[in-house]
């Protein structure tokens, strides 16, 4: 499990980050949205924890920006404000959860697990599943279309390749995912 914790108030953040590490969860910490921006890509984290009040752009603005870039990583917004306005903003920026400070590590852990287990978007399932396979850009493209249900012939036509080459690509993808059929590959990407 890999998460990013973006919070400028470093005391609690660092304590919680070390507790995440003790629980075998990789937690990368960032102090501002700008600092984390270059590190967050499609599907490279299981969840994001973002504080609303960040230096520079706010957490909500940052999350909206990520969503515009088609990055659908499930996100938990944390805040020390207690206004409806912020709750509304968080909801409108597609956050999965709004957590008010102060909260305990156990509460945060529970919500992180809950958020990861019930992902809010199919797109994130696909992004996260494919990122974990370390596919080449070409393999990743083919895998995306494979998940759309295209046959080998259609894939070959779409990418201007021979069916044999497509089959080779698919075999490589399946090997990396440790599966042997399309059905198993679907089940790997969308675990039930």
């Amino acid at each position: 499990m890999k998460i990013a914790y973006i919070e400028d108030d470093i005391d609690a953040r660092d304590i919680f980050a070390s507790k995440f590490k003790q629980d075998q969860i990789q937690c990368d910490v960032f102090t501002s949205a700008e600092e984390s921006e270059s590190e967050i890509h499609k599907g490279n984290y299981d969840a994001l924890i973002i504080d609303i009040m960040l230096p520079g752009i706010t957490g909500v603005q940052f999350l909206s920006k990520l969503r515009k870039q088609e990055i659908h990583i499930p996100s938990i917004i944390i805040t020390a404000f207690n206004s409806q306005e912020h709750a509304k903003d968080a909801l409108n920026s597609n956050a999965c959860y709004l957590l008010e400070k102060p909260f305990s590590y156990q509460t945060l852990l529970k919500i992180v697990k809950q958020t990861i287990q019930t992902p809010s978007s199919i797109q994130h399932c696909v992004d996260r599943g494919l990122t974990q396979l370390n596919l080449t850009p070409r393999e990743s493209e083919i895998a995306h279309y494979l998940l759309k249900g295209l046959s080998n012939a259609e894939l070959a036509n779409n990418f201007s390749l021979s069916e044999k080459t497509v089959k080779q690509y698919i075999t490589q993808i399946f090997e990396k995912a440790n599966v042997s059929s399309r059905a198993e590959f679907f089940s790997y990407i969308f675990p039930v």
Binding site: D9, A12, I15, M53, A80, F81, K101, P102, S104
Partner: peptide, 16 residues
């Protein structure tokens, strides 16, 4: 409230 909650949050994290 925001200014109060942040240090309280840090304190509760340290003393959890």
């Amino acid at each position: 409230i925001h200014e109060l909650r942040n240090p309280i949050h840090n304190l509760s994290a340290a003393l959890e």
